[in-house]
Design a protein around this nucleic acid. Sequence first.
DNA 1: GAGGGATGTTAATGCTCACTAACAACAGTG
DNA 2: CACTGTTGTTAGTGAGCATTAACATCCCTC
Lengths: 208, 208
Amino acid sequence: MDAGQGPAGHRQTGQRPTGERRTAILGAAARLFAARGYRGVTIDDLGRAVGTTGPALYRHFPGKEALLGEVLVDISDRLSRRGRELVAGAGGPRDALEALLRGHIEFSLDEPDLITVHDRELGNLTEEDRSRVRRLQRGYVEEWVGVLTELRPASRPAALRASVHAAFGLLNSTPHSRGALSRDEMAALLLRMGSAALLAGDPVPGPG
Amino acid sequence: MDAGQGPAGHRQTGQRPTGERRTAILGAAARLFAARGYRGVTIDDLGRAVGTTGPALYRHFPGKEALLGEVLVDISDRLSRRGRELVAGAGGPRDALEALLRGHIEFSLDEPDLITVHDRELGNLTEEDRSRVRRLQRGYVEEWVGVLTELRPASRPAALRASVHAAFGLLNSTPHSRGALSRDEMAALLLRMGSAALLAGDPVPGPG
DNA sequence: GAGGGATGTTAATGCTCACTAACAACAGTG
DNA sequence: CACTGTTGTTAGTGAGCATTAACATCCCTC
C-alpha cells in the first residue's frame, strides 16, 4: 500500500532516517527553554543549536508556540501514561505508591530540563495546548490521589491533592541541587523523603 | 542637618507619605512577574497596574532590571534574616527546625507571588544582583543545614543540603494547590509533611 | 536527466518593547 | 510671584525578534 517509509522518504546517506532533525529541535528546545525560559530563547538560538539557521525550523513546526506545545504535551503524556501503567501493575496501594515515587524520581533525575519547563511555561501555551496539558496533569495527579486514598482514608480529597502537589515539589527539586550527590544517593534520599512526607499527611498517623 | 523628610519632601495631601508609589510599583512587579514571568510583563503593564503610564516608572527606578533585582534581593534578605532570628531564638535543634518550618510556611502562604518569582527569575538578573541573591540564599540554606546537622549527625553535608532543597520544593508548592484547603489546614499539612521529610533523610532513622 | 518534494539559506517585513526627549503640572520656598 | 525639584504625560527611537518571501540544493523517481 505504501513505500513503507515515514512522511519523509529519505535514506541512503543515513542522515535522516525519519524526523531526526525534528527530534533534535525538540531536544534543543527543552534544554534551552529550561535554561533561559521560553521568551529568552530565539528562533535563531534553536536553529543554531541543531546546526541550521533559525527559519529552517518552520520546515518542521508551524511556529515557536507549537514547539513549546509539543514539548509540554509530550512530558505530560509520558508522565501520566507511566503513572497509569505503574499503578495497574502494582500489587497493592503500598506497592503502587513506591512504584509511583520511583518512576517520578527516575524521570526527574533523567530529564531535569523537562521537569523544569513542565509547569514554568504553561502560560505561554495556546489555549488548546494548555487545556490538553492540564487534563493530562490532572489525570496524573488523580492516579496518585487514588493510591493515597487507600493509604490515608481519614484524609479529605482536597488534603490528598495538596499532599500530592507538595510531594511533586519535593521530587522536582533536583534541578536545584545538582551534582552534590550521586544519582543513586539522590534517588534513595528522594524516595525516603517523599514516602515519609506523603504518609505523614494525616494528623494521626497510626492505625485508626 | 536636613529637613527631616525622606528623599521626596512632600506631604499635605497625604498622597505620598514617603515612597508610596515606589512600594506600589514593587508590589505590582512581584504580582505581575509571578503571573506572567519577567519577560511577559511590559513597562506599560507595570505603570497601568499602579495607575500611571509606563515611563513614569523611570522616576523611581533606573530600569526594569533594577526593579526585578530589588524584588528578589528583598525576598532573599527577608527570608535569610528571619531564618537567622528564628534559629537564634530557639531552645534547641528540634525547636529551631519547627520554627524554621513555621516561618517558611507562613511566608509561602502569605506571599505566594514572591515565592513563585524567587528562583524562577534568577537568570534575568544583573550579574551583581544575581550574586547578592545567591549569597543570601546560601546563607538561608546553611541556617537550615546547621540545624539539621544536629538532628541527623550521620548524614553528610551534601545530603543535608539536598534535603533542605527538597523541603523548600515541598513548602513552596502552595502556588500549585491554591484554595483547596483553608490557610490553617494547609499550614498544618505542610508542617507535618516537611517535618517528616526532613527527619526521614537518614537511611536508619533510629538512634546510633 | 527532467520533475518534484523536502529542507536550507539569506533578505525582508512588521510588531513589540525598553528606554529617552520634550514638555506640563504642581508643591514648597525665597 | 519667580525658582526649583518632583513626578507625570505623550511622542519618538532603535533594537530584537517571530514570521514570511524568494531563491538554492539535493535526492529520489520516472
